[in-house]
Computed example of a mutant assay.
Amino acid sequence: MDIVDEIIFLLKKLQENNEVTIPNIKNKLTFSQIHCIAAIEYIEDANITKLAQELGMTTGAITKMCRKLLNEGYVSKYQKEGNNKEIYYDLTELGLDVSRVHKRVHEKSYNRKKDIIAQYNNEEKVAILRFLNDMNSIIKDTFSEVIENYTGNDD
Rank of each mutant, 00 (worst) to 15 (best):
N18R: 14
E19H: 10
V20H: 00
T21P: 06
T21C: 14
I22M: 09
P23F: 12
N24G: 01
I25G: 00
K26I: 05
K26Q: 08
K26D: 08
N27V: 01
N27W: 13
K28S: 03
L29G: 06
T30E: 03
S32N: 12
S32A: 08
S32T: 10
Q33W: 02
I34A: 06
C36L: 12
I37E: 10
A38G: 11
A39T: 13
A39V: 14
I40W: 13
I40L: 07
E41H: 13
E41P: 03
E41R: 15
Y42L: 12
Y42P: 07
E44V: 12
E44W: 07
E44N: 13
D45Q: 09
A46F: 11
N47M: 04
N47Y: 06
N47R: 04
I48T: 13
T49Q: 12
T49E: 09
L51M: 03
A52S: 05
A52E: 02
Q53Y: 12
Q53T: 04
Q53F: 08
E54P: 01
L55D: 06
G56Q: 11
M57S: 03
M57V: 06
M57F: 10
M57N: 08
M57H: 12
T58I: 08
T58N: 08
T58V: 06
T58H: 07
G60N: 15
G60K: 15
A61K: 05
A61Y: 04
I62D: 04
I62N: 04
K64C: 05
